[in-house]
Amino acid sequence: MTMPTQTVAARAVGATKIYGRGDTEVVALGGVDVEFGAGQFTAIMGPSGSGKSTLLHCIAGLDRLTSGQVFIGEIEISSLSERELTEVRRDRLGFVFQAYNLVPTLTAYENITLPASLAGRSIDGEWVDRVVGAVGLASRLSHRPTELSGGQQQRVAVARALANRPSVIFADEPTGNLDSKASSEILRFLRNAVDELGQTIVMVTHDPASAAFADRVVFLSDGAIVDSLTDPTVDSIAQRVRSLEQ
């Protein structure tokens, strides 16, 4: 399952996102070039308003760029129709959001298999079982989201993202609402997914401790990439963050 690390799973070229017009114009992304290697765990960091979430949303096909290009594998998604884009999200990408990741009327299992159901695909039971086992949810599959703890809900979300065997998983502050124990659990699952399954993950976070789980950290400020770190530690990240804030 492991892919050569030099392969690029997703990349943005000259990604520009401008909100508003004239006097109220705000440049959220000012021509960002970035690549996310396959089988890599990348963290995107930056202060509030740095454009990190916008970058994630645009690369993940949830939002459209004002100009520039985004590639998922070899597919250039900025030119896709709404319908094609939806299919890319459904079939090639996985998502973990900060909160409200699950459809409250569906059970944990139904949530995990939701993208497959939406696609009308048959479910790869063996794979789902393995993913479910990995996140330790086997006994909770028939529960509804309201019957699960916050940490468990996020684990279901991770399982859903993995169950789809996506090219890339995008995680937007996946531990933002969790206590530290549940947080590190989730981050370990993500780490394991990269190490054991060769999964590509891109995660937005503002927490150095979380970012330290990644292989690489990209720093964003005022809509531009200002720095990056490979094999980061909590300390080295915290140092960069401080220097960025000055």
């Binding site: 949830l62 709404e82 319908r83 939806t86 299919e87 999200r89 459904r90 079939d91 998502f95 959001f97 409200y100 990741n101 699950l102 459809v103 409250p104 939701l114 993208p115 939406l118 696609a119 859903r160």
Partner: peptide, 14 residues
Amino acid sequence: TREIGLLRAVGSHR
């Protein structure tokens, strides 16, 4: 709104 947004994000067609 959020639930529908989520469905759309994980691949529901309009």
